[in-house]
């Protein structure tokens, strides 16, 4: 039976979604962190997911599953927002401060999607647990 690898698959997905939630929290927290130059300003981060296929030879199983791996966390290449704020102590000689390229609306929807995906995998784990428990009770009663 392949219950153990199901737990590993769901676990890897939960881990990946946690990393995603982590970057979203970081993006939202720094959404209005100004900086005095374009190079210093915070840029939105995003994780890149990839599937890792189990090798059939290792699992002696005809059907390899696929876990999730966080390949990298990349910074967004969208332009940052220059804003004219001469009162800001961080403003450069032209009175410009730079704000991050974080889009709060996109981050919020991304957060919902990540939370839903996480919950789905919790549900997978629960189901597999109850299936395994039912299997252990086979022949009783």
């Amino acid at each position: 039976m392949s219950f153990k690898s199901i737990s590993q698959i769901a676990g890897s997905a939960m881990n990946a979604q946690t990393v995603r939630l982590n970057t979203i929290a970081s993006n939202l927290a720094n959404a209005s962190t100004a900086a005095s130059s374009e190079a210093e300003v915070y840029r939105a981060r995003k994780p890149v997911f990839a599937a890792i296929y189990e090798r059939a030879a290792f699992t002696e199983d005809a059907m390899p599953g696929a876990r999730v791996q966080v390949l990298d966390v990349v910074q967004s290449t969208e332009p940052v927002r220059p804003v004219y704020e001469p009162d800001n102590p961080l403003a450069d000689e032209n009175g410009i401060v730079f704000y991050p390229n974080v889009n709060p609306v996109a981050e919020m929807t991304d957060m919902m999607s990540a939370a839903r995906a996480f919950e789905t995998n919790v549900e997978v784990l629960n189901r597999v647990k109850s299936m395994q428990q039912a299997l252990l009770k086979l022949g009783e009663g």
Partner: peptide, 16 residues
């Protein structure tokens, strides 16, 4: 049980 693993893989990779 084997199909469960395939479907769990699909659900895990929903954002890959």
């Amino acid at each position: 049980a084997d199909r469960m693993k395939i479907l769990a893989s699909n659900l895990a990779n929903v954002d890959t």
